[in-house]
Design a protein around this nucleic acid. Sequence first.
DNA 1: TGGTTATCCGGAAACTCTTTCCGGAACTAT
DNA 2: ATAGTTCCGGAAAGAGTTTCCGGATAACCA
Lengths: 201, 201
Amino acid sequence: MSDNTADFNRRERAPRRMRTDARRNIESLLEAAKTVFSTTGVDAPAKEITDLAGVGVGTLYRHFPQRSDLIKAVIEREIDACADAAPALAAAHEPGVALATWLDRFTAFVATKRGFAAALHSGDPAFDGLPGYLMQKLGPALESLLEPATASGEVQARTSAQDLLYAVAKLCAPMPNEEPDYGRRMVALLVNGLRSGESAH
Amino acid sequence: MSDNTADFNRRERAPRRMRTDARRNIESLLEAAKTVFSTTGVDAPAKEITDLAGVGVGTLYRHFPQRSDLIKAVIEREIDACADAAPALAAAHEPGVALATWLDRFTAFVATKRGFAAALHSGDPAFDGLPGYLMQKLGPALESLLEPATASGEVQARTSAQDLLYAVAKLCAPMPNEEPDYGRRMVALLVNGLRSGESAH
DNA sequence: TGGTTATCCGGAAACTCTTTCCGGAACTAT
DNA sequence: ATAGTTCCGGAAAGAGTTTCCGGATAACCA
């Protein structure tokens, strides 16, 4: 591998920070992509995204060499947002409520972002790291809510954060023509089970 | 039913049966597609399929006007095979065993055919009919195994065939880097629960 | 501030894959 | 055998993605 991957490794003299227009364009692209993905779908033509972002196609491919890189970036950004929501919830609500609310938010993320399920099941190796990323970011977030809830006795957890996360992710993956809140119902059942200490064992 | 794959509906004047070379080519294409899909993936270029089938591209698009039609046909054919396996199992084994064995077969289908999950979550309206088809074909098949098992007391079913089918389908949808038989384990749990009458209620 | 240089932008062109089209071959029915 | 369809194959058109590079622009330094 010839090391031209990124130029962060120029420690010896001039780190020269990224140009501001570049950073700004990346931001615009991610924002535009998020919008277009949820409108037209993840298979929307690149042109639609670059137009909305007010940028040329070359710019898109400069920052996201493959189409999958853009999709990955958008999803990871949403995962981050989901993780970042945890502390505020923990501070504002009682442990049990915070947990339920956060799970609801996660459910909404999985259920509404069809691109997520599509990427996950596409078979494209480019997305192989996504479950890991989700686990790494959301695992601690969930745990930080699960632990107080358990400690306060509101929840008798016999389910690991990982199992819970995956179960929710799978149950809420949207299927065509599915009863609207089939997934939400399943998760509610799960949470209920958690509360009464009868969850999966 | 959107099955314009074959022209069986020409009842009114000149039934003129489908040309044998046409039928043969359709067969070759389905066979080739099944192989290529499980090798290269559902996104494999059409050329690869037509080459393996020993057929021109035009022939492919004559019988399957859209790429999704071919994918749909392959999946439906596998669903049919799964449904057709039920009677033999029912005849050869005791009700409980027949049920478990069939579910295992269904699990294998969902787990190994990544194209199935991909199609389901692609968001392409072309695949909207697939869950319905699955339900329509596999629902009765499963019921025909569930009913005797319940009657003989080997299973105390509190779960409808539909719920069971969907639950299995979702749990077994393969995710990248997933523990190899995570899905199978979940299903085993489910079946076990079914047997002891403690399944989802 | 002005010069130097690495980085970035934009869009045309090259590519890849899908889908259409049609002349001629092959099959069915009579 | 002949007429009448249906079907085949592959060339070409379309659609979308990815590459490429001359010209612009921001960062750094004196």
